[in-house]
Amino acid sequence: MSGADPGTEPNEDSAGEPSARRKPVVVVVEPETPGNVGTIARAMKNFGLTDLKLVNPPELREDGEAYGFAGHAREDVLPNADEVTFEEIVENYHTVGTTAITGEDDQSHERFPFKTPAELRASLKTVDAPTAIVFGREGRGLNNEELSQLDEVCSIPADDDYPVLNLGQAATVLLYELRELTVDETQLPDTEVVRAAEPDIERFHEYFGDFLASTGQREHHREKNALLMRRLLGRAHPTEREIHSLLGTFRKATTKLEHADHLAAKYDEPVYPRE
């Protein structure tokens, strides 16, 4: 295992401008359980990180817990992990220490002020620097002396009765929140919605108005429900397929209601119950 390396400079495009932000490295200080190291490596793999650095780690055997918990990270992240000293990380990186226990005010300088993972993401998004996310021990975390040497402090909001997360869980939550900085593409499909054409949406509102009339509602109720539907679709941004499906459904419902009225009149039967 080699020592701490702040990494290479980001790539430059043809204009000489940086084209990619350097991704953070992940540092685990004195982990006690190989399985947690493997879990962290797996989370790194999930969220586009590859550079794992370990301070005084336990033995990580290829047939042991670490590799068993690492998933596909056993192929690259874990075997390429560097063993480093805490001092090397402090000297070479902009450091973010993680802690579950924070200071409540500015009298606790080691643990206050602190950022939530979302706030940390917003902060790191505006700069490019060799950055290290530093996690502490399973049972005790980072101590005050260590935190005082780090540049920033991050804490995951949790229930006040039990705010301490398992080391692997904490790393997974934090790296998930930072994914906008580390993952270019995900397995999820494009989430942008193409809203149906406005004439089709207006045609739906006409059909819905006919449906309301066929139900026999009083006019002021029909007007209120028509407005509620307009507001609902305004928020929902229906797609072309969705609006066409709704059009067909309400058209058929209106036809059936009108047919029921016709049969009731033809055979002098009572109409179906109305309000």
Rank of each mutant, 00 (worst) to 15 (best):
N144W: 05
G136C: 11
D184P: 00
D151N: 13
L124N: 09
E206C: 00
H220N: 12
K224R: 14
P113T: 07
K125C: 01
V183G: 11
Y176L: 07
Q217V: 01
A171H: 06
N225A: 13
V173R: 03
E180G: 09
A170L: 03
V173C: 07
R203V: 00
V183C: 09
R111A: 09
V194S: 14
E206Y: 12
A226N: 11
Y162S: 13
A158R: 03
V153P: 01
D151Y: 03
F211P: 02
L212E: 12
Y207A: 13
N166A: 10
E198W: 03
T182K: 04
G136A: 09
N225P: 00
R111T: 12
E138R: 02
E119L: 11
G141D: 07
A213H: 11
V153H: 05
K125D: 14
T215S: 08
T116V: 07
G209E: 14
V164M: 04
L175Q: 12
L167H: 05
L178G: 11
Q169L: 10
P130D: 09
Y176V: 06
A118Q: 12
I133E: 03
S123L: 15
E177F: 02
L142V: 06
E206S: 12
E146T: 08
V193T: 15
L142S: 07
D128Y: 05
E138M: 09
E198F: 00
R222N: 07
N143S: 05
G141S: 12
R222I: 04
F204G: 02
V164N: 04
A226M: 09
A171R: 03
D128Q: 10
Q149I: 00
L120S: 05
N144D: 12
P157N: 02
L142F: 04
Q187S: 11
S148D: 10
D184W: 05
E206M: 11
Q169H: 14
N144K: 12
V134G: 04
R137H: 10
Y162C: 06
P163Q: 01
N144F: 07
E223C: 01
L212H: 11
A122W: 05
P117S: 07
D190T: 06
E223T: 14
T186W: 08
E219G: 00
N225F: 14
G141C: 08
K115I: 00
T172D: 05
K115P: 00
Y207M: 10
Q187W: 11
V194L: 13
R137S: 14
I156Q: 02
F208R: 03
V194K: 13
S155H: 08
A213Y: 08
G216T: 10
E202D: 14
E219I: 02
G139L: 07
T215Q: 15
F204N: 03
H205A: 07
A171S: 12
G168I: 06
C154G: 01
A129D: 13
E119K: 13
F112T: 05
L124V: 08
R179K: 15
E202C: 00
